[in-house]
Amino acid sequence: MQQIIYFFIRNKNFLLFFVLFLISVFLTINSHSYHKNQYVNSANFISGGVFSVKSSITDYFDLKDQNQKLTEENRLLRLHLQNIEETIPALDSIQPVNDSVFSIVGAKVINNSYSKTKNQLTINKGSADDVVIDMGVISSEGVVGIVSHTSKNFASVQSILNSNSQVAAKFKKSNHFGTMIWDGKNPNVVQLKEIPRVANVALGDTIVTDGRSTIFPEGVMIGTVKDFVIEDVGDYYNISIDLFTDMTSLKHVYLIARKDAKEIKELEKEATHVEQ
């Protein structure tokens, strides 16, 4: 017994190191698996508070660019509205729909990363503003990521620039769909997999999100085809996409949720259950 106690005392530093190192590796592997299981994340009042203070100072630096982006977005939305009013003259008589399919929350990015292989953003809206996990995050230019954790006033977003991210995407012109992933190298380029060989691919084709995942609505812009090759094995294309969104200067983003996402998920779950 004494021997055992002596052993522990003699090696206490090694044992302490070993236990803490194991915990770290566990936390790391944990953060690689599905995002809901992560214990340590930036959606809490300490890091949220620090990032808020930081962003309240640094916001002024790129105010001009951000204003320009918002003005450009307003212009496009106005153009859209004009065109709709043109085609539907009696728009005034149509009441705004209260039970629309999507709900949208506006938010500001208070911390952004794009240089790692597993990037996350922190935004200044949380569960108090009806932000929930799995909401899609978009900017005025295109997709940004998916909400992975929420606290009362903050949420962290798994960026599309994260080697664990997968987004359902498709060709705007032909509806051939695949999965968008990121190889961790260039923050302006993502990869599109599983596009079948029969699809007609050309440089410059527009890629948009696919509605089948219930996270993003159909048709949110992603980017254009930059380069493509046919995989050595299998009958699929391997496509590089130039992103529309400049992930390195994000400020104002929108969080989108499909209100009936839960119903769709449950139905799909039931269907697979019956099949088995």
Partner: peptide, 9 residues
């Protein structure tokens, strides 16, 4: 790690 959402690296 908490600020970076990086697990325990």
């Amino acid at each position: 790690d908490m600020f970076n959402n990086s697990g325990g690296i």
